[in-house]
Simulated scan of single mutants.
Amino acid sequence: MGMMRGAHRRNGGGPDRTVVRARVRQAYRERMSATQRSVVIAWGAFTATFGVTRAITYTLHREGAGGSGGIAVGGRHIHHYNFGIAALFAVGAVAVRGDERLRRHPATAAAYGGGVALVVDELALLVDLKDVYWAKDGRRSVDVAGGLIGLTGLYLAGQEFWHAAGRALLAGRREQPDRPAQARPDGPRASGGRPA
């Protein structure tokens, strides 16, 4: 860590980004177990997938695609929860048959989180068994709830890591070179000890 403190800076500005990334990676490896890392990756994938899915569907809806937007095969709309279920099937297969290396692989955790997000996003459709996805009633509350669940879970899953990463980023900011002090006139002083 001492070697990182004296790291060279690039572009005459703040701390070397490579050093900051190395500190965050070090905190990630040292502050979290393999299980915690998998949970953080899964929550991160959930949050990102949910957010991207909502953005895409809002864009389709805003541009007039309505309920027919998205993927269609042979004129039949394919709901994205199907991709979520497929991802969960794949994760289940890895859990049941895969070796430990595959179970702990970051892609497995990401597929799980992303798959859950795709299913949760269309949960109303699955519960009611009718296509109510584009209905305005309650949609905003579901969006906000999903986003808050994702962000809260992501924070709680890796709380120790996030704190260590924050400290590493703040330490990098503190290492920025001091800005040159503004030149003060050394001219004669008026009464009261103030510069003239």
Rank of each mutant, 00 (worst) to 15 (best):
72 A>Y: 14
109 A>F: 02
76 R>I: 14
65 A>T: 08
69 G>A: 09
88 L>Q: 03
41 I>C: 11
86 A>K: 01
61 H>C: 08
52 V>S: 03
87 A>N: 05
98 G>D: 00
111 A>M: 14
83 F>H: 12
67 G>R: 10
98 G>E: 05
104 R>K: 14
70 G>T: 01
49 T>G: 05
70 G>D: 00
55 A>R: 06
105 H>P: 11
73 V>S: 09
82 N>E: 15
77 H>F: 02
85 I>N: 00
84 G>K: 04
37 R>P: 06
92 G>M: 02
47 T>G: 11
79 H>E: 07
48 A>V: 15
48 A>M: 13
36 Q>F: 09
65 A>I: 11
79 H>T: 09
37 R>G: 06
42 A>K: 08
84 G>Q: 00
50 F>H: 00
67 G>M: 13
91 V>Q: 04
93 A>Y: 13
65 A>M: 11
45 A>L: 06
78 I>G: 04
56 I>P: 04
43 W>S: 10
53 T>V: 13
109 A>N: 06
91 V>S: 03
62 R>M: 10
46 F>K: 04
101 R>L: 13
99 D>Y: 07
89 F>A: 13
65 A>V: 12
98 G>P: 05
58 Y>T: 11
55 A>D: 10
75 G>W: 00
104 R>D: 12
54 R>W: 13
54 R>Y: 12
90 A>I: 14
42 A>R: 07
36 Q>R: 12
57 T>M: 10
54 R>N: 12
91 V>K: 01
84 G>I: 00
39 V>H: 06
92 G>E: 01
106 P>I: 00
63 E>K: 11
46 F>Y: 13
42 A>P: 04
44 G>S: 06
73 V>F: 14
64 G>P: 07
79 H>R: 15
111 A>Y: 04
67 G>H: 09
39 V>A: 12
41 I>A: 07
103 R>M: 04
93 A>K: 08
62 R>S: 15
66 G>I: 06
50 F>Q: 03
104 R>F: 02
107 A>K: 06
64 G>L: 10
74 G>F: 07
71 I>D: 01
75 G>S: 04
43 W>E: 04
95 A>F: 09
60 L>H: 09
91 V>L: 06
64 G>A: 02
63 E>P: 00
73 V>W: 13
92 G>I: 03
88 L>G: 05
66 G>S: 08
106 P>R: 11
97 R>Q: 13
93 A>L: 14
47 T>C: 07
95 A>T: 04
109 A>D: 04
78 I>M: 09
80 H>I: 09
45 A>H: 03
60 L>C: 05
74 G>M: 08
91 V>Y: 03
63 E>I: 10
79 H>F: 05
89 F>C: 10
47 T>M: 07
72 A>N: 14
111 A>V: 09
101 R>E: 14
40 V>C: 08
58 Y>G: 02
97 R>Y: 15
57 T>N: 11
102 L>H: 12
68 S>D: 11
100 E>R: 14
46 F>V: 14
